Amino acid sequence: MRALFIGGTGTISAAITRQMLTQGWELYLLNRGNRNDSLPEGAHILQADIRDEEAVARLVENLQFDVVADFIAFEPVQLERDYRLFRGRTKQFIFISSASAYQKPLSDYRIDEGTPLANPYWLYSRNKIACEDFLMKLYREEGFPVTIVRPSHTYDERSIPLGVHGKGTWQVAKRMLEHKPVIIHGDGTSLWTMTHNSDFARGFIGLMGNLHAIGEAVQITSDESLTWNQIYEAIAAALGVPLKAVHVSSEFLDACSTEDFRGGLIGDKANSVVFNNAKLKRLVPGFAATVRFDQGIRQTIDHVLAHPELQKEDPEFDAWCDLVIQALDNAVKAVRG
């Protein structure tokens, strides 16, 4: 079986790449080559910028694929390009959408593939919805063999998954290590799902070349539900420090920040979500997410602590956290008189 990944080195795709190379796939990676040195040997590298359509067309001119997957498409115009490049050249085209595209606010916290797609809070999610609409129209009208995959919050060993953070996530861990308070949105009791990228990869590979997945949208997540308080407690425990949490409403955080907290929080992480993965398990018999979050986050913390290059500080976010926490303290004092 021959596959082409556009990207192939990100949080999600790197894990899929690693697993596929142990399973006998003939794998091609189309990317700019910036992170390929971190991948195991065995993949065929097609080095190019996907935005250079003419150059890519020359690279794939004599190639046919069982699967083409685009991990870095975010807008319909990018999929229009993919369609021109790979129409008639692949038996399956997989688009990586996002579970953030699901209805916000939710009418039911239990989510499956039938949950409506509508997110007025986040342009990223609306663009993903538009991408899905474009591809499904091609499937209905021309038989273009599309499969849509919807990940939720997927993490790897290189970055600590969090709710409220700045340009990266290390600064929150640094605050914990310095015994400083960290911000949790809301009261920390809303439910969330964290999926380890190795679990995601198994589900994804099970959909590749799967004739039952053509024309379908499938979410891939863990079945484990955690509150944000539990998530931050697990991170603190992995760091070996007590958690000093300050709970702040998502609306207040959005109003106080220049970051896109409106989309990322109000349009996503502030909502309780519990995913029903029955469809995935029907399409991929035997699939199960096996990495419990408290176990996976220990692997992530150990890796980040062992690699100083991943510990990128964000002093602006650090100062912003202090300002928000001080503002809450001042408000309490003002109300109490």
Rank of each mutant, 00 (worst) to 15 (best):
T9L: 03
A319W: 03
R282T: 05
F74A: 09
R262K: 12
D314Q: 00
R35M: 07
V149T: 07
R336L: 15
Y102D: 04
I297D: 03
E233R: 13
M176V: 03
E80P: 01
T9G: 07
S100K: 03
Q219V: 00
Q171S: 15
E41D: 15
S152T: 11
A173H: 01
D66T: 13
D318E: 12
L29D: 05
T115S: 06
A73V: 06
F65T: 01
A288K: 11
V335D: 13
E157V: 10
R2E: 09
A288W: 00
F71N: 06
V67L: 15
N36R: 09
E26F: 00
N62T: 14
N197V: 04
A255T: 04
Q295C: 09
G88V: 10
A237C: 05
D322M: 01
R262P: 02
R262A: 06
L123S: 14
Q326L: 09
L46S: 08
R87L: 11
R87V: 13
E54Y: 07
E251Y: 07
D108S: 06
K137H: 11
L162P: 01
F261I: 01
N276Y: 02
A69P: 02
W25P: 03
Q23W: 04
A55D: 03
S100W: 00
W192I: 13
V332T: 13
I94W: 00
T290W: 00
H179G: 09
E178K: 11
A217Q: 08
N229S: 13
F200L: 09
G296A: 07
G88D: 11
I45F: 14
S98H: 01
T90P: 12
G215T: 00
V77D: 14
I231Y: 00
R202E: 07
D70V: 04
M20N: 02
T300I: 05
M20P: 06
R126A: 07
D66N: 14
Q78N: 06
V284P: 02
G114Y: 02
L162K: 04
R298T: 13
M136Q: 14
I160Q: 03
D82M: 15
